[in-house]
Design a protein around this nucleic acid. Sequence first.
DNA 1: CTGAAAGCGCTTACAG
DNA 2: CTGAAAGCGCTTACAG
Lengths: 340, 340
Amino acid sequence: MVRPARTHAATLDDVAARAGVSRATASRVLAGSSKVSERAQQAVRDAATELSYVARQAARELAGGRSDAIAFVVSETRERFFADPFFAGVLRGAQAAASDHRRQLMFAIVSTDDDRARFEEYAAGGHLGGAMFLSVHANEHLPGRLERLGIPVVLAGRPPGRRPALPFVSPDNVAGGRSAAHVLIERGCRHVATIAGPPDMTASGDRLLGFRAELAEHGLPLSDELVVAGDFSPDSGYEVARGLLARDPGIDGIFAANDLMALGALRALREAGRSVPDDVAVVGFDDVPLAAQAHPPLTTVRQPLEAMGRQMTRMLLDALDGLPVTSVTLATELVVRDSA
Amino acid sequence: MVRPARTHAATLDDVAARAGVSRATASRVLAGSSKVSERAQQAVRDAATELSYVARQAARELAGGRSDAIAFVVSETRERFFADPFFAGVLRGAQAAASDHRRQLMFAIVSTDDDRARFEEYAAGGHLGGAMFLSVHANEHLPGRLERLGIPVVLAGRPPGRRPALPFVSPDNVAGGRSAAHVLIERGCRHVATIAGPPDMTASGDRLLGFRAELAEHGLPLSDELVVAGDFSPDSGYEVARGLLARDPGIDGIFAANDLMALGALRALREAGRSVPDDVAVVGFDDVPLAAQAHPPLTTVRQPLEAMGRQMTRMLLDALDGLPVTSVTLATELVVRDSA
DNA sequence: CTGAAAGCGCTTACAG
DNA sequence: CTGAAAGCGCTTACAG
């Protein structure tokens, strides 16, 4: 041993030396190339294991000219990220899939234009293999810009516009809206209202579309005064519900486009002395963790949050491998509890 | 221009050339070294701006031998990460601080031994500048192992043991427990119980300690039968509350060690036909986003989640700069609503 | 199938 | 204060 003691972890050269091959061959084996003899493959793999070799991501990235880190970016205020379990649910799935594929997940919240500029700059610096975007509003241009930079992008939710340019993963919002209408009708409701989501998100429109269609097919057209948008926060649900109730006391069913607003509506109904579901039935959307603790426990349309996260990660990894990627819609599930 | 067109972003050489200095000098300026002439500094900065230069993290890491990426790691099940807004709150703060310092945040959940091994391997690969750990249970050894690898670590919450080896950021759980007891006493409660947290987390013990101390100082000793541990989930809160009520119908106040359990307790009380706060007052801990929507709106002890996240990130960055780091305890705040 | 060699873009002693 | 040079650990044409 003439070389000075290595301070730390094994390097590719160490592996190659131990395996008795060149660094190039070792690299090929570890990269999964098939054009290497069985013998060499075995030797390299054994050496790597014995030395518990871990490739330096930085070196690999520098040499290869590309990064395989993927980013989970929430384009919302930090406040909403915190308040809505939706994000954590998808994040959980994305992280699980990334971990399964031994990828690291980068986490970012971009809520200001400054954040956006920073993130774009970072991405332009070549540090990103791909990015998934959560909560994309109509005026959000960052995903498109990244795409143009050559960075694979996947969106959570269908982007606005007829022919979406970017691949997305979405729950079946239309079917979800239908099922909400369905429970309400079954419950005997005949005069329903809805607390819609923000108009600049397709999820809002799609849920409303399905809700309205199902209602219409049962001879219960939904008039425009009974459709009022909230902003997905509990307080907006509370306010909208109050307004609705004041204007039209005959309402006997409410569909809120997400659980947070449904919970706010429940509070408004309580204060107004209306019992749920007897006087007014309520259906939410999401199935947040606390939906079951509500009073009464909330009937809701469950989004497959974890599956959405996993799916987005997989699509990004596919894109990184040069595979074609197409949008996916995942089924929702009605969870019947006591509120409707 | 004889050189072939650059495909992409500007490199340090480009900046140096444009500024009329050597690459070394350009590097020094951008690294913030003071031993460079004003003239050169200005020239380099201008050139960098004009070229909208962004340093390649990978190259920097490779050359410098260290990484400045910091990891946010949750050592809990993915399920709990999703169910408890606590994590999202701290994550929000950590991300904000990282972004302010132009650092990327790595996100990981380690819930199995396999996850742990994978993460340690990754860290050992030199990819990490530092890591903060959330939800550290008594038998969690990963933080210590990273520390021994020379990677700065900060914990959320005081680790078990008398003389914690690792720096931490913690809410003042003892004071928080005291303030919970205080409201209950003020409310006129004389026979209180507590749904404690998991015994393997110091937060549980500390909250109980404060709660008990305050009670005792008011001549209201807390007997052991009135202390039952849950696991921080709503269902455990529900179950424990039911058991408590069945065993001792005279209970007139309950302190739950987190809001999720408090919400479960509220449900149990409702089912038992006990009114809150008149029959039984309830205090939680955390101030989760939905605490205000509960029935009745929950009185609780707020943890400064975002501040905790920010603080942990700052400590990690300090450690990366070679500065000494010491543990910090942050004040909690009583939020009085209707449940107590 | 395999190796020698160049190069990815930076940082940092080492000499001025 | 500044530059030439070596080197971080890999990948990938280029020749066998």
